Simulated assay, not measured.
Amino acid sequence: MYKNQLQELAQRSCFNLPSYTCLREGPDHAPRFKAAVNFNGEIFESPQYCSTLRQAEHSAAEVALNSLSSRGPSHSLAARILDETGVYKNLLQEIAQRVGAPLPQYTTYRSGLGHLPVFTGTVELAGITFTGEPAKNKKQAEKNAAMAAWSSLKQCKSLPSFFLSN
């Protein structure tokens, strides 16, 4: 999943496709792999060794996406594209699945004039509700709520072991 998202990000950003390198260690009957991905000139490494090459590459891609998304949409072209692709919604769903929590639930509220509506989205994840910035349409309001939740979870010091552990 992460390799596909990173490749999509590269294509939307007109960057070169991600390239992976791998380090293999251990005996032939029990090899271990650690991967790194070069994305737009930045190198992101898998945090630990994995039992398969595929797992190591996905781990490196996950590190890249997490790093790029933590910069926020205003700090880089890549982060803005991440917001546009809805990767924050995917990351929240992945977190919920990892910890056995119900999938995120989105609610959108419409306000404003009939011809100039304003949509505000919320997302509930594991009993916590996050509210995003207002938007011009429902889809963007949901993305904004997911981005607000992701940003909040990344900054929260008491939740990483529950929400953000690998």
Rank of each mutant, 00 (worst) to 15 (best):
M1Q: 14
Y2T: 02
Q7T: 15
Q7Y: 12
L9I: 00
L9V: 00
A10I: 08
R12S: 01
P18Y: 00
S19D: 12
S19K: 12
Y20D: 02
Y20N: 04
Y20W: 02
P27M: 09
A36I: 12
N40M: 08
E42Q: 15
I43H: 11
E45G: 09
E45M: 13
S46V: 07
S46C: 13
Q48W: 13
L53P: 10
L53G: 09
Q55G: 12
A56R: 03
A64Q: 05
S69M: 15
R71C: 04
R71S: 07
P73M: 13
S76P: 02
S76W: 00
S76R: 00
A78R: 00
R80A: 13
R80S: 13
L82A: 07
L82M: 13
D83G: 09
E84N: 11
G86A: 06
Y88T: 01
K89Y: 01
K89T: 09
L91V: 10
Q93M: 12
E94N: 15
I95Y: 03
V99I: 15
G100Y: 02
P102K: 10
P104S: 07
Q105G: 09
Q105T: 14
Y106L: 01
Y106R: 03
S111L: 04
G112M: 01
L113Y: 07
L113F: 06
G114W: 05
H115R: 07
H115T: 06
L116D: 11
P117D: 04
P117G: 01
T122Q: 11
T122P: 05
G127R: 09
F130A: 02
K136P: 06
N137A: 05
N144C: 06
A146V: 04
A149F: 02
A149R: 06
A149C: 11
S152L: 07
S152H: 08
L153K: 03
K154T: 11
S158A: 13
F162S: 05
F163A: 02
F163D: 00
S165C: 13
S165T: 14
N166S: 15
